[in-house]
């Protein structure tokens, strides 16, 4: 007999696994309130809100946050344009080299980030390109294309080809068809892809260490705190805020693509 109840051992293993994934993140929330500022002492000797005020008044944190948001915003826009174009081409027609195009889009995520990073860095140094916001964006947009692409391809696949033909048949030219039929049908997938690209860029550190030079994005600021802890309480607060901020686009993308066969986050 087949039953719809899972064996108890499987249930325990599944929920224990889920707990393993989440407990460390919850810990971050507790540490943001600890009164201890010199070690990672557990349990916290006391709880306080003062580190939030301290963090609020830190210009270096604000500067890093600002740069991260700027880079993520530009990279997302670039990735959305390029990823959508690529998805449209790949799902529109079978052409020679189509597989190679998909591979090319996925490669920056499939290969370890350090390779993308050092490649870009050595290219910048060969080309004598100075580090700037642009150099960070070049790296980020490159690996963000794939998340937009994945979402868009999934939606294009659902968009039946006869809809586009129906639009042309009824007298619409290509641009009208794009505006009135294609765009409304892929917009939520694009938005979801854009949100994920934003989250990916906002969080990226490995490639960024190679392309940022002396600039500090928020993850780079955190990395320095991790390597040489100087302001543990501020780091705790920043960590908590980062967790909360990245959850928003993920939840948003989930609700936008729910119910479809889209793979919202599968492409990270």
């Amino acid at each position: 007999m087949h039953s719809d109840r899972a064996p108890i051992a499987l249930q325990i293993a599944a929920f224990a696994g889920l707990a393993f994934l989440h407990l460390p993140l919850l810990l971050i929330f507790v540490y943001a309130f600890t009164t201890e500022d010199r070690s990672y002492q557990w349990p916290p000797p006391g709880l306080t809100l003062k580190w939030f005020a301290v963090t609020w008044n830190r210009p270096d944190v604000w500067a890093a946050l600002g740069l991260s948001l700027k880079v993520a915003a530009i990279s997302t826009v670039v990735a959305m344009v390029l990823g959508t174009l690529c998805a449209a081409a790949v799902s529109r027609a079978k052409f020679f080299g189509r597989e190679a195009v998909s591979l090319l889009v996925i490669l920056p995520i499939a290969l370890p980030g350090i390779i993308t990073g050092i490649s870009l860095r050595s290219a910048f140094s060969l080309g004598e390109i100075p580090f700037s916001t642009l150099t960070i964006v070049l790296g980020h947009a490159t690996f963000c294309i794939v998340v937009v692409y994945n979402n868009a391809v999934a939606r294009f696949r659902r968009l039946s080809g006869s809809l586009i033909e129906a639009s042309a048949d009824l007298g619409a030219n290509g641009f009208q068809t794009f505006r009135h039929v294609i765009l409304p049908n892929i917009s939520t997938a694009l938005l979801a892809g854009g949100m994920l690209a934003f989250a990916l860029s906002f969080d990226e550190v490995i490639v960024t260490t190679f392309t940022a030079g002396q600039q500090q994005t928020l993850p780079i600021w955190m990395l320095e705190e991790l390597v040489r802890p100087r302001q543990r309480p501020v780091t705790n607060v920043v960590a908590m805020v980062v967790v909360l901020v990245t959850f928003l686009p993920i939840l948003g993308a989930y609700y936008l693509t729910r119910g479809g066969t889209d793979t919202a986050g599968g492409g990270k």
Binding site: S160, S162, A166, L170
Partner: peptide, 26 residues
């Protein structure tokens, strides 16, 4: 020339009225 498609190809995001009016809209 206009076509009635095999799978009808109705625009899922438009109301029935806007579907019918599509050819006039463009």
């Amino acid at each position: 020339v206009n076509t009635v498609f095999q799978d009808y190809a109705l625009f899922p995001h438009l109301s029935v009225r806007d579907n019918v009016a599509y050819g006039l809209m463009v």
